[in-house]
Design a protein around this nucleic acid. Structure first.
Length: 195
DNA sequence: CATATGATCCGCT
DNA sequence: GCGGATCATATGA
C-alpha cells in the first residue's frame, strides 16, 4: 500500500474555495507488528484512528510543534498506516508559501511535517474520511511503475530499521532530505542516495 | 502529579 | 553537522 500511494494527488479545498494539490513522491509504511509503529503498543486515544477503517487520515502531533499525516490502510482493528512524507506542489502554491513561511517550491512539502503545514492539516483532521471527504481527499493521479520506485530504510526512527519500508519515486527532486547520516566513518555514502 | 521522549524542522556553524 | 525549540502523550510514582 505504501508504494501504491506514490503518484497520487493529495487535494485540499479551503473554506474560501482555494484548492491545494500535491503529487505524493515519498511514503513510509507502518505495520502493527513493527516496533516503530504508533500502533505497536496497542490502541490509545491518540492512535485510535489507526485501528479504524482504511481510507481515513491519522494525524499526530510530535516534537512539540509538528504534525504528520498517515493514510490508514489495513482492515478495522489491525493498526496499519502509511505516512505521507513528501510531495510535489501542483496547485495553491502561493497559499502553501504563506502556510509554510517559505518561498522555495522545494521547501513546501519536502518532509512529513512540512507537508502537513503546507496543507493546513492539524489534529482536527484526525479521522477524516479521505474517500468521501469534500475538504481533503486523494485523487488518482498518474501511477508510478514499479521500476521507478526505490525503497530504503525509514527515517527518524530508532527501531524497525530492518524493514525497508520507505518508498520514493526514483530521481524525483521533491523527495525529502536524506536522513541524518547514521554515522559516517570516513568517506562514502549511507542510506538510499537519491539525489 | 512528574517526567521522558519523539515517524521533525530550522538556524547557525 | 549540530542542537534548540516546545508540548502532547504515555507511563510510572
Amino acid at each position: 500500500m505504501g508504494p501504491d500511494l506514490l503518484g497520487r494527488v493529495l487535494v485540499r479545498r479551503l473554506d474560501d474555495g482555494t484548492r491545494l494539490a500535491a503529487r505524493i513522491v515519498e511514503t513510509e509504511a507502518y505495520e502493527p507488528e513493527d516496533p516503530a509503529s504508533h500502533s505497536f503498543r496497542g490502541l490509545t486515544p491518540r492512535n485510535a484512528v489507526m485501528f479504524g477503517p482504511a481510507g481515513h487520515l491519522y494525524v499526530y502531533f510530535t516534537y512539540g510543534m509538528h504534525h504528520c499525516m498517515n493514510v490508514v490502510t489495513g482492515p478495522t482493528g489491525e493498526g496499519s498506516a502509511v505516512l505521507l512524507r513528501a510531495a510535489e506542489p501542483l496547485l495553491g502554491i502561493d497559499t502553501m508559501r504563506v502556510f509554510r513561511r517559505r518561498e522555495g517550491v522545494r521547501d513546501l512539502c519536502a518532509g512529513p511535517a512540512m507537508l502537513c503545514q503546507a496543507f493546513g492539516v492539524e489534529r482536527p483532521f484526525d479521522g477524516a474520511d479521505l474517500v468521501i471527504g469534500r475538504d481533503l481527499w486523494i485523487a488518482e493521479g498518474d501511477p508510478i511503475s514499479a521500476a521507478r520506485i526505490a525503497t530504503g530504510p525509514r527515517i527518524g526512527i530508532r527501531v524497525g530499521l530492518e524493514h525497508p519500508w520507505r518508498f520514493i519515486v526514483m530521481d524525483d527532486p521533491f523527495v525529502s532530505a536524506v536522513p541524518r547520516r547514521p554515522k559516517l566513518t570516513r568517506s562514502g555514502r549511507t542510506g538510499p542516495s537519491t539525489r
